[in-house]
Each structure stands twice: as structure tokens, then as C-alpha cells.
Design a protein around this nucleic acid. Structure first.
Lengths: 334, 334
DNA sequence: CTGAAAGCGCTTACAG
DNA sequence: CTGAAAGCGCTTACAG
């Protein structure tokens, strides 16, 4: 069961190695009989082309790099499933790179990726700074490697295609929903750290609130649950609130916990909504209303888009926006 | 900024390509002056060895395959962080393979992995069947590829090393805890689907319960939250319960929701405990007591163990068990 | 439709 | 300590 090479196959099938290669990669260039003979031998020997030799000779790796910031975000894990499923369909392997800003500069990782000769790059970071974007642009142009951003948008340019939902619109719609519930003091609870997608959600919130002649109130908190509790308690002591749209489900749940401790009823006194439709939303009591983000699809469509780019196909829409929906459960009146 | 090859470096540094190769891989075999000259040119040209050529020539890929069942499990994502961090330290790249049992048979994926010439395999599936284990064994022996199981144990054999915690002990300890709270009717809520780790948890539970002369009561539910609700309602209608140890935090939280709807107080009437110490546990009210599983460390140690195997180093302990701890929060009295 | 041969960019004994 | 050369296992014009 030691590894068979293309020579072994050629020998056993009584053809040259060129023919074996063609039987695999360009079946139509080989006479049916010989093709079948070759394929049969391949089957028998359990032959699998050596990926390195193939990559070296063809200059294509059929491998894509997936760059993620931190795996432990629920949304990213689910996105990976979408990516992997489509990658499998198109026979691409996935090289995983996790960004841990402290130790290794992003630039080094990108160099590594170039050395790995990947055919394409999927960038899942939900935060993209100007310098990161420029770096990606450089890579793309210098090495002609297609890149796709998933679940991120870079407002400044669409040179690098992206796929996400319309977060601005989602933010707008969810805020509208609360306004229609009759809420007047609606807060958006966002993060201290800057995320492009959260900026979009805030923009949508602002549009809805201003349109309704209400005062916009954005509170920025940490992503860490333990800190939130104190922070919320402190902050809302002397603020009137009757509605909260949080940028993440977990933040919404965290807020609800604080509200309950302060004997505030949800949704009677305050309407609450989150973003993402994670397990947190379903496990919470009352069950959390939220924007459903088709995160698996974002991954799948992003990967599909990348395959098109890698095949030099025309692409019409450089900023793909998937449909989202509002899931109204128990934390909003309706 | 097009890709420089080893020839370009050799030319610019006025040495042969063999010397360039040595300067990179066996620095001690090169005179310091020339080494520095070469390294300087490498820096200037931004040279990175072509991974395919290197892999083909050296028969080593410095790549490991990570096999996961389904990314969307919180524990797996966090484990990936541990794996990636250690992989980076030892300069290994990660090829990610997601098992989706329906479409592609596991055997094909394993063949793909062999073709990819990985130096080692990390198997994160938390369920391992006999046939899966045999398949891994075959791969290991036929191709001499080291394999490590993380967060799984295969009771039948330690031929393939594993890293996890002592789930039996953890199950025992947590159950003891409830018994010490004075609980008499303690249920273990486990999953219908078989998982090796859950078997261990059950075993620990059984030991504690039997030791205390209580009746063991194991209920198996689906992993799906939506189903659980009905299931719990139905099941506990005519069962006396004053303690629950669930195999996962999310199941514990799900149970608590049902309990609350039935006007049962936690922890006054029922003590509840989970496993893993995820965000669910902290977000729940009351905050969930649970077994803390050092999931990042399991990934990191697993990867470290694999590097040792890949370097043919001696390994003494083929079943590494990391320490766990009991996090007692609000769902247990104490 | 098929084969001989060059070449992909490295590593590694083998000489010197 | 350094270089010339073979070889890793494929792909792909180029002939035929």
C-alpha cells in the first residue's frame, strides 16, 4: 500500500505517463478504451497524484487560503462550513491561517500564503483597516491572486469583491421595527473596537432614528461579557431606555440579564434585538428577536465567487449582498 | 515584485543554489560571511521558497491535516486556536478538512490527505467509531503518518495517541458535588447520538451515583435545542428530579428554560450542571455551574504532541489527560 | 490519439 | 565550506 506514482500506473496500463496524466486531466484527449484501462489501473493501485509534483508542474495548487481573525467567534465557524462545502465541490483544499495580531505581523502571514502558491484567498476578518486593505491590494496585483472578502465590506473601494448582507439596511429595518413598537429612546449597543460591519449597522440605526425624529444614542461596550454587566449597570442608571438594538446576540442577551436584575421587563418595558441569530438567541429567555444573517451562505457564496475569479470568469457584481430577514421572537412586541 | 526563485538568489549572492538552500535549512554548514550575504539577498528580493518544490524535493510538507466533523461546535473553534498557535511556532501549515458524512465518504477524504503529503494528522472528531479508528490505523501504518486524537479517546487501543481531559473523573466529580448538595434524584442528560466522550461522562456519573447508593437515571436527548424543549417537558412530567448533569452547557441551559416554565426554582429545587464552560454558561441566569474543559490547551497540547511524533521523538504518555476543574456558579448550592 | 523530453524549483548525497 | 548534478512526480508543448 505504499504510494503509487504515475510511472507505476503508466507501466501497469502499458502507456506513457503523459497519457496517464491526460486520462486524468483531459479525458477527452484520450481514446475511450485506453482511458478506461488507465482509470482501472488507477483504481486498482489506489493511485492519487502527488499534490506537490502537480502543483510544481502546473503552477496551480487547487488550494485556497482562508484567513480568519479568531476562530472562536461563532459566526466564523459556521461560515467555514459553507466555505468547505463549496470548496469540496470544486476540488479545492483549504489552507487555514489564523491571525493572532500579537505574534506574527499580518504581512508575514501574507508572504507565507504567497509562498504556499494558493490560487485564491478568502479574507474573513470582520474588521478591515485601510492598511490591511492596501496590503491585500498589493498581494492581489503583484501576484495576481484573486481575493474575496466575506462578511466584510470595505467602503472605500470595490477592487476586492466582497459578499455580505446589507448591514445598513438590516440595522435600519430592525430599528424601524422598534420604532413601530412605539419606542422613543432606542439605544444602539455597539462595540468599542471598530468593525466595518458594525459601522454599517450603526449607520442603518442612525438613518431610522433620525427619520423618525428621535435622538440617536449609541453606546459602545466591550465584547467581553464580564465587563458588560458593570458597564450596562453604570450606564443605564441615569439613562432612559425603552429599546435596544445590539450588534451581536450575545451582547443583547448580556444586556437582558442586566435589565432583569434591575427589575425591568422585556419586552413590556424595553424591546431588545440582536444580530446574527445564533444559539444564544434561542437559548435566551425571553427568546431574542434578531436579524438573521445567512452566515453559512455568505461563506458558500464567497467561496463560489472566488472559484469564478480563479477561472477568470466575468463577474458582474463586485459587492454581493445576500438577503437577510428579521426574526421576531419574544423580546419585541408585535 | 514577481516571485524570485532560488536561482535569482544564487545569482545575486554569487553562490550556487545548493549554498542558498543550505543557508536556509542548515545554516551551520555555511560559512558565516556567505550565509549573511545570502540572507541579505533573500531579504532584498523578498524570496520565499516555493512550497511545492520544497515539498517535492524533501518529501516533507511541513503541513498537517486537521480533520473536524462540524466547525460550528463552539469547542472545536476554540480548539483550532490552540492548534494554530502551536502550529505557527513549529512552522507548520494547516490543511483543514471538514467531514460532512453525507456527501464524501471519510475514506476518500483520508486518501486526499495522503495525496496532500501531510506530515501529520490531527483528528478532532469527538466521536470515533471502530471503523473510523481502523481506518486511521491503516493510514498510520501504511503511510507512516503520525496521528493524534484531540478531545476524543478510543478506549480499545492507545496505538493512536490522544489528548483530552479525564471525562470519567469530571463526570464523577460533578455528580459527587450534587450528591453533597443533598440531591437524591440526579439525572444525567446525555445525547442520543453516541459520543465517546459522553460515554465517559456517563461512566463517571454512574460511578458516583452507585457509590452513593442512588438510582442511576440517564436520559438521552437530541442535540437540537428546539426538540429538547418538548422532550424535557414530556419526560419530566412524571419523573422526580432534583439534580441534572448535562453533557453540554447548551443542553443544561435548555433544560433550565424548561424548568423555569414549569415554575421550578434553580438551584433551590434542582441543581444543574453542564460541561465545557462556554459562553452559554456565563450568559445563562442563574449562571451555570459546569466542568471547565481547557479546550484551547487540548488543541495546543495535541499539536505539540504531533510535532514530537513527526520528529520521531520518544513519547511516554500516549493518553495525555489535562487537568479540568469544577466551576461552581449559581445553579448549584454550595 | 500517443510518446519522448523538457521543465517546474527545490534538496541532498557526492566530490572536491 | 562549496558546487555540479541527479532526482522528487508531475504537466505540457512538440512531434508524429
Amino acid at each position: 500500500m505504499s504510494k503509487a506514482t504515475i510511472y507505476d500506473v503508466a507501466g501497469a496500463a502499458r502507456v506513457s505517463l503523459a497519457t496517464v496524466s491526460r486520462a486524468i486531466n483531459n479525458p477527452e484527449k484520450v481514446k475511450p478504451e485506453t482511458r478506461e484501462r488507465v482509470l482501472k489501473v488507477i483504481e486498482e493501485l489506489g493511485y492519487k497524484p502527488n499534490a506537490f509534483a502537480k502543483g510544481l508542474a502546473s503552477r496551480k495548487s487547487t488550494t485556497v487560503a482562508v484567513l480568519v481573525p479568531d476562530m472562536s467567534r461563532a459566526s466564523i465557524a459556521e461560515m467555514m462550513n459553507g466555505i468547505a462545502d463549496i470548496a469540496r465541490v470544486y476540488k479545492y483544499s483549504i489552507l487555514l491561517y489564523i491571525l493572532d495580531s500579537e505574534d506574527t505581523p499580518e504581512e508575514d502571514i501574507l508572504k507565507e500564503i504567497v509562498a504556499a502558491q494558493v490560487d485564491g484567498i478568502l479574507y474573513l476578518n470582520d474588521e478591515i483597516t485601510d492598511s490591511q486593505f492596501e496590503l491585500l491590494q498589493t498581494i492581489k496585483n503583484a501576484y495576481q491572486i484573486p481575493i474575496v472578502l466575506t462578511n466584510t465590506i470595505y467602503p472605500g473601494s470595490d477592487e476586492i469583491p466582497s459578499v455580505s448582507i446589507d448591514y445598513e439596511k438590516a440595522g435600519y429595518e430592525m430599528t424601524r421595527r422598534l420604532i413601530e413598537d412605539g419606542r422613543q429612546n432606542i439605544y444602539m449597543v455597539s462595540t468599542v473596537r471598530k468593525y466595518m460591519v458594525n459601522d454599517q449597522k450603526e449607520a442603518g440605526y442612525l438613518r431610522a432614528v433620525q427619520e423618525a425624529g428621535l435622538t440617536p444614542r449609541i453606546m459602545r461596550t466591550s465584547g467581553r461579557i464580564s465587563i458588560n454587566t458593570e458597564h450596562f449597570n453604570e450606564y443605564f442608571k441615569d439613562h432612559k431606555v425603552d429599546g435596544v438594538v445590539a450588534v451581536r446576540d450575545s451582547i443583547a442577551v448580556s444586556f437582558m440579564n442586566v435589565a432583569r436584575e434591575n427589575n425591568v421587563s422585556i419586552p413590556e418595558d424595553i424591546s431588545v434585538a440582536g444580530f446574527q441569530n445564533t444559539k444564544y438567541a434561542v437559548l435566551a429567555r425571553p427568546k431574542l428577536s434578531c436579524v438573521d444573517v445567512p452566515i453559512y451562505d455568505i461563506g458558500a457564496v464567497g467561496m463560489r465567487l472566488l472559484t469564478k475569479l480563479m477561472n477568470q470568469e466575468e463577474i458582474t457584481d463586485r459587492r454581493v449582498k445576500l438577503d437577510h430577514s428579521l426574526i421576531l421572537r419574544e423580546t419585541t412586541k408585535s
